[in-house]
């Protein structure tokens, strides 16, 4: 149990969503406080950053995936490694909103966990005049999934930090929950960890 003491907790976040919705833009804004106007489709990028979350230094690992990924099977390998998901769509593109259902389903299937830390993110909120997806529509979908809905803008940096921090908080609380002994969920996991502690 040396590592957790020297190394800050690592939270693994995965950006999912259709191509061109602004996943990379959001990530870059969060990482480097910059907005890239040009659209360059992503394959799979990984970022890491030390941040202070509620006074605690943690590491965030962001996996920015390809929205244009044709092959859903390949995504499984990414999704497995994620601890929390930012499911992004563009409020200016209804198709991207419809696609979120597909991503959600795939994540739940791969992670096999209804309560996986998850945020529904409506991006490009600065382009409200081009809105195609109503807040109501988005909110009700988020409600059916039991997840928060947040609208962001990578361009104006509106709510960018919030979505990452909110997700990290959820991840953190889930980890704490998982480590609690006697928890109904992940009982085996907690037991295993406890056992590990004893051994170490």
């Amino acid at each position: 149990m040396k590592k957790p003491n020297t190394q800050p907790a690592l939270h693994k976040v995965i950006m999912v969503g259709s191509g061109g919705v602004g996943k990379s833009a959001l990530t870059l804004q969060f990482m480097y406080d910059e907005f890239v106007e040009d659209y360059e489709p992503t394959k799979a990028d990984s970022y890491r950053k030390r941040v202070v979350l509620d006074g605690e230094e943690v590491q965030i690992d962001i996996l920015d995936t390809a929205g244009q990924e044709d092959y859903a099977a390949i995504r499984d390998n990414y999704f497995r490694s994620g601890e929390g998901f930012l499911c992004v769509f563009s409020i200016t593109e209804d198709d991207s909103f419809q696609a979120t259902q597909e991503f959600r389903d795939q994540i739940l299937r791969v992670k096999n966990d209804e309560n996986i830390p998850f945020l529904l993110v409506g991006n490009k909120s600065d382009l409200d005049e081009k809105r195609k997806v109503s807040v109501f529509e988005s909110c009700s979908r988020a409600a059916t999934w039991g997840v928060p809905y947040v609208e962001t803008s990578a361009k104006t940096r509106s709510n960018v930090d919030k979505v990452f921090y909110d997700l990290m908080r959820e991840i953190r609380s889930r980890k704490i929950e998982d480590n609690k002994p006697g928890n109904s969920r992940g009982k085996d996991k907690s037991k295993r960890k406890k056992l590990k502690c004893v051994i170490l």
Binding site: M31, K43, A44, Y47, K49, L63, Y78
Partner: peptide
Amino acid sequence: FAAVNVRDMGSVKTAFKLL
């Protein structure tokens, strides 16, 4: 497995990740 490009950061440069 999935290969992921790792953006340079600190000591970690020209790296990729295998998930």
